[in-house]
């Protein structure tokens, strides 16, 4: 892979990050009401895959749907307006960040875990019949790999030999539950067992993801059938903004005061044996300490990891992306601040 392409990949990553940070800012200011699941930490995975898509290809997205749409070239101002719930948003304020539908880009998202699997199968089926040579990709987390409909989709895609690439973004957490505590075997092997090629890549390195996606997508385009990519990454802002686990880390004294008293009362009340009670408390403690440890590992930021390959050029690209995205978001906000 040549340097120019890496710069393009990084530039897309920076655009995605800038958009997510702008959305986060709107949320912090109270201009977005409910949940907001940011894709900060997934940028290298998304950039490496989306770089291979062309007009007529489709994307089935999960609840972190803004980064792939930004990378695919969706209108930034319309996306921002949608998050703000405005009539001129990309879904007229009716969808919000979990339910973005962009027909021109054949891209649709959903807030139901695992639903991008069957949707991707359908997109790929339509591509094979109506647009030969075009492909579909579906994005989902490793938590979705335990969802029945996702496993059924892996089987169906292979059975029908569809042009579909499954992209599993593995951050190790299924909401606030550690995936390894509720997942059997290894996911890249699980996918292989369905009879498709499966690659495990470093999801912090856009070049590595790009390389694996090139193989998977060109194979699918040529009629070779589906493939699976498992990309290890992290969510820098937790499951969603205001993630209770992160709040404990940010304000341990305040949160422990709130959580601690009922917890102590519960342990002291009649219930299980002491051994079981200790095991219960241990599970809570372990969860919080694993989150704390992951927080300290800033090397988990894909913009830093991939950016290192570009040296100072990365800073320049980042600044460019930031000013582009900020200008577009400002356009969305223009004349309507305080609404």
């Amino acid at each position: 892979m040549d340097e120019i392409k890496l710069e393009k990949l990084y530039s897309q990553m920076a655009r995605m990050r800038s958009f997510e940070l702008a959305a986060s800012d709107l949320w912090q200011r109270g201009m977005i009401s409910g949940e907001l699941h940011l894709g900060t930490g997934e940028e290298a995975v998304v950039a490496g895959v989306v770089a291979h898509l062309v007009e007529g290809d489709a994307m089935a997205l999960d609840h972190r749907s803004t980064p792939p749409l930004v990378a695919r070239g969706a209108d930034i101002k319309l996306l921002a307006s949608e998050l703000l719930g405005w009539q001129d948003g990309i879904c007229r304020g009716r969808g919000g960040h979990m339910h973005l539908f962009v027909p021109d880009l054949l891209s649709a998202s959903s807030g139901i875990v695992g639903s991008s699997g069957p949707l991707g199968v359908g997109f790929a089926l339509a591509a094979s019949r109506l647009r030969p040579g075009k492909v579909a990709v579906c994005f989902f987390g490793e938590g979705a790999m335990n969802q029945g409909m996702m496993l059924e989709s892996l089987n169906l895609a292979v059975s029908w030999k569809l042009p579909l690439v499954f992209v599993c973004k593995d951050n190790g957490w299924a909401i606030t539950t550690r995936s390894k505590d509720v997942t059997s075997g290894r996911l890249e092997r699980r996918a292989r067992a369905f009879g498709m090629p499966s690659w495990r890549v470093n999801g912090l390195r856009a070049d590595k993801v790009w390389e694996a996606s090139r193989r998977a997508i060109s194979r699918a385009r040529a009629g070779g059938g589906p493939a699976f990519i498992l990309a290890r990454c992290t969510h820098l802002d937790g499951h969603f903004l205001g993630d209770p686990l992160l709040r404990v880390l940010e304000d341990p004294v305040g949160q422990m005061r709130e959580i601690g008293e009922p917890l102590i009362k519960s342990v002291a009340s009649e219930g299980a044996t002491w051994k079981e009670k200790v095991a219960g408390l241990g599970s809570i403690g372990k969860t919080i300490s694993v989150v704390a440890l992951e927080r300290r590992l800033r090397k988990l930021d894909p913009l830093e990891v991939t950016g290192k390959l570009l040296g100072d050029k990365a800073l320049e690209l980042r600044a460019e992306a930031e000013s582009e995205i900020e200008a577009e978001v400002a356009k969305a906000l223009k004349g309507r601040e305080g609404l």
Binding site: V113, G114, G143, A144, N146, Q147, G148, A174, I175, T176, T177, S179, D181, V182, T183, P244, L245, I259, P262, L263, K265, S266, V267, S269, G271, A272, T273, K275, E276, K277, A279, G280, L281, S283, I284, T287
Partner: peptide
């Protein structure tokens, strides 16, 4: 899903044999 967090007090009182986290596998 997530009951170790959501039902932390029940977990601490009755232990992980009676308060169990599940994968996202509703079916």
């Amino acid at each position: 899903e997530d009951v170790h967090l959501l039902r932390m007090n029940l977990l601490a009182r009755f232990g992980p044999q009676r308060v169990m986290n599940t994968p996202i596998s509703e079916s």
